[in-house]
Each structure stands twice: as C-alpha cells, then as structure tokens.
Design a protein around this nucleic acid. Structure first.
Length: 328
RNA sequence: GGCGACGUAGCCAAGCGGUAAGGCGUGGGUCUGCAACACCCUGAUCACCGGUCCGAAUCCGGUCGUCGCCU
C-alpha cells in the first residue's frame, strides 16, 4: 500500500503576468494558504519595487515568506527550502493546501523535488564568518580571490581536474558557477555533477499541480513597462532612497533586485533617471524571458496561456479541475 | 532652384581599395547554496544603377532619399 502523497499547488509565471491576483482567488476557492517563492519579497521595506501584495489585497488569505527578513540579511535557496517545508507542514496541520506563488523557479524546484542540500558542511563551518561577510564562506572567498588573481580560465582548469563533467557543462566565464562546483567538491569530495545528476532523477514527494501563467510576449512586455512607470509614480525613488539612508548599498543581495540596483545607480549619480528607468524596463523584460526558459524545461508543467481563456473565471475553473484530478 | 554633408542589420555605429568591428535591442539557451544572480549563443554583403580596377562598402558618374545652409 503506498502512502498518498500530500497535495501541493504551485502558481508561477513571468513577472507582471498577474500571478498575485489569481493566487488570491485560487487560494480562496480551494482553501489554500500561500507561500511566496520570491527571492526579493522576503525582505521588509521592499514593497513597491517588488510589487508586493498589500494587506488589503490578501483578503485574509494567510501568506508566508513575505517580509521575513531585513534587507541586509542573507537569503538563498537553502533557507527558502527549510522555511517553506516548515510552513507546508503547518498548513497541512490546519487541514489546508499549500499554494506556492512566486516567480523564482529555482526556489520552487527546491521544494517541489525536495532537493538535497544537506551533503555539505558549509553552513556549519561558516557560522562565525556569517555575521561579518554576509554568509560568504571562507572557502568561497578563497576561490573568489583565486578567480580574481589567476583568471576565469585558470579556475575552470582547476575544475576540469576534479570534475571534468561539470567543467564541460559550465562555461569558463561563468565564474560563479565554477566556484560553486569547486566548493562543492572540496567540501564533500564528490563532484557536483554526480550530485546534480542524482537530484535530477528525483520524483516529487508531492501530488502537485504546477501552473505557469503566461501570455503573449508583446502584451507581457507592455505590462512590464507600464508597471514600472506605475512604480515610479507610486514612489519607488523614495523607497530606495529610504533603504539607502538605512545603510543599504549595492553589495547586498537584496539590493541587486530589479528596481533597486537601477534606482540606486541613479541616486548615486551614476546615470540619469531616464536611463535608470530604461535599464530597469529592459532588465525586467530580460528577466521575464529567462523565467520562461526556466519553466519551459521544468517537467510536468501546466501552462495557462491567458489569451486562450475568455476570463479569469475560466482560468480558475480550469485550475480547480486540474487540481481535483491530480491532487486529491 | 543652388551649394554642402550623409545614406552600412530593427536602432546606434566602425571601416575609407583586398573580400563587413563593436554596442543596444530582438530571439534562443544554461542553471540543483548568491537565481530579480551569473553565464552562453544569435543577424547584413554595405540605398539603387553604371563605370574604373585582378579586386570596391570603400574611387568616378548618375538616380533616388535624408539632413543642413543659401536664394
């Protein structure tokens, strides 16, 4: 007799496609509680630039992983996964269905396939460094310095030596990933390519529905452009200026978020406001495109092409039907 | 009407006789502890016609177009 898998609903899609609004309607009709899978909305005080849902818009639906950290705290997949799993458990205990909503595909993947991040001891050994250096491990720092001093090609050759499979998969210029692979190998003695291959085979522990809301590219881009103009009107400049006064600078992961790094560049006199807005729009469009490629390679995804439905009601109906078939 | 400048991919733009740099945008892709990150791939025969030359985007002539100045 096999245990029935617990239910899980995922609603994602490129930025500005309209996930938030739909998520509330969905959660209300299936008795769901929402877990945000968004690497920037976890931060307090970053509201306008992340297009965070307001209290009012939540309409009483519980939300998690929103406003849980200060902008100078670190956040990454592993943390996300830990917290999300905890919340999922709690939601089950209330007899509700967890609905993961957000555009960070990597985060979604980490819980959906319960990717194993525990092999490494990095998190332990770094603890004392963490406070000072934003969680950058000593080993990682050494590798970063080596990359700086000896160059990307040299570093890549080091990887070639210990993990030729990864070396072939990671472009030499992608220093960040080369470092990660090297770091993994040095900490575990196992090539990360072996780990990745293993994790990739995993079957999800959940009975899930993975919805990707999408719409015609041109329309989406238009929405993005408009949304950014709106953010400026709503006071994005003030929001970023406030964070800056609070001591946030561009070295913070949070300040690398779209809308923050561009406006910070403007506030620091690096470019005109017009230029900053132009870059922000462009980078956001690029981001949406990258999100779509990501979802395109995920398995078992249910695409919802907006223009194929007459209205939101019809989309909701489709989603509920899918959930009934697959999740219960 | 006259004089001058210019006309290179969707846009910006180098080249100035030897067989088309680069940037941006666009499109595609990678990603398993920084992921709203990082990274990779992606296009033209040079307005048109004729001439000179072994060879022309590059020189000459003409046509068309754009811009500026002048009457």
């Amino acid at each position: 007799m096999k245990q029935p898998k617990p239910p899980l609903v995922v609603l994602t899609g490129p930025t500005a496609v309209g996930k938030t609004e739909l998520s509330i309607r969905l959660a209300k009709s299936i008795g769901g509680e929402i877990i945000s899978a968004d690497s920037m909305q976890v931060y307090r005080g970053m509201d306008i630039g992340t297009a965070k849902i307001t209290e009012e818009e939540k309409q009483g639906v519980p939300h998690f992983l929103l406003d849980e950290l200060e902008p100078w705290e670190e956040f990454h997949v592993v943390l996300f996964q830990q917290k999300a799993k905890q919340y999922i458990k709690e939601i089950y205990s209330r007899g509700h269905i967890p609905v993961i909503v957000g555009g960070t595909g990597f985060y979604i993947q980490s819980v959906l396939y319960d990717i194993d991040f525990t092999k490494e001891d990095g998190a332990e050994t770094d603890r004392k460094e963490k406070a000072a250096r934003r969680g950058t491990s000593a080993l990682r720092r050494v590798l970063e310095e080596l990359a700086q001093a000896k160059g990307a090609v040299w570093l890549h050759q080091e990887l070639e030596r210990v993990d030729p499979v990864s070396a072939r998969q990671i472009h030499p210029n992608n220093v960040k990933r080369v470092i990660r692979a090297l770091e993994y190998y040095q900490q575990t003695g196992e090539p990360i390519s072996v780990h990745n291959a293993r994790e990739r085979e995993k079957e999800s522990p959940y009975a899930f529905c993975y919805f990707v809301l999408n719409q015609e590219r041109a329309v989406l881009y238009e929405r993005i452009n408009r949304r950014i103009d709106q953010m400026i009107e709503d006071g994005l400049l003030e929001e970023v200026a406030g964070l800056r006064e609070a001591g946030c600078d561009r070295s913070l992961v949070s300040m690398q978020g779209l809308g923050y790094k561009e406006i910070l560049a403007y506030l620091e006199g690096e470019c005109s406001l017009e230029e900053a807005v132009y870059r922000l729009k462009r980078d956001t469009r690029h981001f949406a495109k990258r999100q779509l490629t990501w979802f395109g390679r995920e398995r078992e995804v249910l695409w919802i092409q907006k223009e194929a439905f007459p209205d939101t009601e019809a989309i909701l109906e489709f989603m509920i039907k899918q959930i009934e078939e697959r999740v219960y």
